[in-house]
């Protein structure tokens, strides 16, 4: 996938995050479209490309709310590294692992973000984590599952096929 396509996907994700996420929030938990995109993009890529994608996606997200500039870039670079490392080498490519990856990615992203936002205040981090992060992770993971079925079920993107061909 060329960088322009990746940038277009970033921007689409950001638009979804800025426009729709608030409207479909359940009990204060918003789906994290950007994490879903990050997992989808990092999964079938080499580690360096995945890290650069993670950093860029996080940085663009940071630009939208610059008070913690660098926070999302940091978190998403780490997540992208992890996904490209673990996902690419050890995990089979199916919907359950995709959902599990999104779930974990949201939790890691939130743990890092909450620690930065609350300056490592354990009580605040823990409170927000249990109040919002878990539900957000479940919500995003289910959304990722739906997207996975839509995309691969309809054969719109040949990631799975491409991967199986490579294997």
């Amino acid at each position: 996938m060329n960088p322009v396509k990746v940038l277009v996907i970033f921007i689409l994700g950001l638009i979804l995050q800025l426009t729709i996420a608030d409207k479909v929030a359940i009990a204060g938990a918003k789906p994290d479209f950007l994490i879903v995109i990050l997992v989808a993009l990092a999964l079938n890529r080499n580690v360096i490309a995945a890290v650069i994608i993670g950093f860029s996606l996080g940085f663009i997200q940071d630009l939208a709310s610059p008070a913690f500039l660098g926070m999302n870039a940091f978190a998403k670079s780490l997540i992208a590294y992890g996904i490209a490392r673990i996902g690419g080498e050890y995990l089979p490519h199916n919907i359950l692992y995709f959902i599990a990856l999104i779930f974990s990615a949201v939790l890691i992203n939130d743990i890092i973000s909450l620690n930065v936002v609350y300056s490592f205040s354990f009580t605040n981090v823990l409170g927000s984590f249990f109040r919002y992060s878990l539900l957000t992770a479940v919500y995003s993971a289910l959304l990722g599952g739906v997207l996975y079925i839509l995309v691969f079920g309809l054969g719109m993107i040949g990631v799975v096929r491409q991967r199986s061909r490579i294997e």
Partner: peptide
């Protein structure tokens, strides 16, 4: 260790951004 080097580099850049003064961050982001 190119992959790890890239990761460390982007993490360092992120931390630098994170430690910029707030006004400067906002201005740059704008």
């Amino acid at each position: 260790h190119l992959d790890k080097t890239v990761l460390v580099a982007v993490l360092v850049v992120s931390l630098v951004f994170l430690n910029l003064p707030e006004a400067s961050k906002v201005n740059k982001a704008k």
